[in-house]
């Protein structure tokens, strides 16, 4: 039997701004099993971070979850009291953020901020918490941890700070780690180190990871499952192999085309044309239709549902429906030919 940790059902989050309601997340559903790695990919404004914040209920005004359910071990966290949700955060589900330069409080030492989480969720006293903080810093590969706990964030490099963030997130051995663009603000060599570290820790501690990124290349060999989001909806989901070698949504194909590959020489990358959809004025049909080279009439008027491509592969694109019909028509024609 599958060991489902997190079950998100038809999640809807909206921002009530002065210029109108922005539906940042519009009916997102997924499952996360114990010990698995789920990747959520999409461009800026696709709703991937908002999905994560909705799960932990750390959205800021004017953002609000307006529909759906989020089950953690069978309990709907959206129905949790403030106290209950606080004991979830940092203890059972932890999150690390995009920019390690600004995600640590500049006026407290690294040790203070680490110990704060540890003392909040466990019954360790100060010196035990301090010991645990040093232990965690060692685990995430921070050199000289005894000295680091006394230092302020501005005294550490970006990569170091992200390691501190990871140490902080993992200090209470959470079931799920959400990594919201954990490497975007770091340079490439540090990116690789941080991802490697996350994979290593995942194996060691056995937690599940949700990794959010705009860069498909970054998470290629890390994820068990990948979700591709566009304009607050899931447009394609599948195993890492299915997404990379058999993409069925035009947007996923576009994303893959825009990853540079070694040995490509001077061939220009093909970017996705147009600009992201205006979330204040969402089109009636498929949100990607205006940027899609192969858009059909139906794409402009009707929102496509997720269609099963394979046992673990779904895509919300009319092209797939068309493909099924074409196939049926083809085989129909063939049969007709045989009759003659």
């Amino acid at each position: 039997m599958k060991d489902t940790l997190l079950n998100v059902k038809d999640l809807q989050t909206a921002f009530f701004t002065d210029s109108g309601v922005v539906r940042a997340v519009n009916g997102v559903s997924f499952n996360l099993e114990k010990g698995k790695v789920l990747g959520i990919v999409g461009e800026s404004g696709s709703g991937k971070s908002v999905t994560a914040y909705s799960i932990l209920r750390i959205l800021v005004d004017p953002g609000k979850v307006v529909g759906g359910e989020v089950f953690f071990k069978g309990e709907d966290v959206l129905k949790y009291s403030k106290r209950e949700i606080r004991s979830l955060r940092g203890e059972k589900i932890s999150i690390i953020f995009q920019d390690p330069m600004t995600s640590l409080n500049p006026v407290y030492t690294v040790g203070n901020q680490l110990m704060e989480t540890i003392m909040l969720h466990t019954d360790r006293n100060r010196s035990e918490a301090r010991q645990r903080a040093i232990e965690m810093l060692t685990l995430v590969g921070v050199n000289d941890p005894e000295k680091r706990v006394k230092q302020y964030p501005h005294e550490l490099s970006g990569g170091m700070r992200q390691r501190v963030m990871i140490a902080m997130a993992l200090a209470c051995e959470p079931d799920i780690l959400i990594a919201d663009e954990p490497t975007t603000a770091l340079d490439v060599t540090i990116q690789a180190q941080i991802l490697e570290l996350m994979q290593e820790l995942q194996k060691k501690l056995g937690m599940a990871i949700i990794i959010i990124t705009h860069d498909l290349g970054v998470i290629a060999d890390m994820c068990d499952e990948i979700i591709v989001m566009y304009a607050g909806r899931i447009c394609e989901r599948g195993t890492s192999d299915e997404i990379f070698y058999n993409p069925k949504h035009e947007y996923t194909k576009g994303l893959l085309r825009s990853i540079p590959k070694l040995g490509m020489g001077h061939i220009r990358l093909k970017p996705i044309g147009g600009s992201p959809v205006d979330l204040l004025n969402m089109p009636k049909g498929c949100a990607f239709a205006s940027r899609c080279d192969r858009a059909m009439k139906i794409c402009l008027t009707n929102q496509p549902d997720e269609i099963a491509i394979g046992p673990e592969h779904m895509a919300a694109c009319w092209m797939n429906v068309k493909a099924v019909y074409d196939e049926a028509a083809d085989s129909g024609n063939k049969q007709g030919g045989d009759d003659k």
């Binding site: 203890e91 953020f97 995600s103």
Partner: peptide, 8 residues
């Protein structure tokens, strides 16, 4: 946001 996500 980090402080809130810790459960404080």
């Amino acid at each position: 946001r980090t402080a809130r996500s810790k459960g404080l």
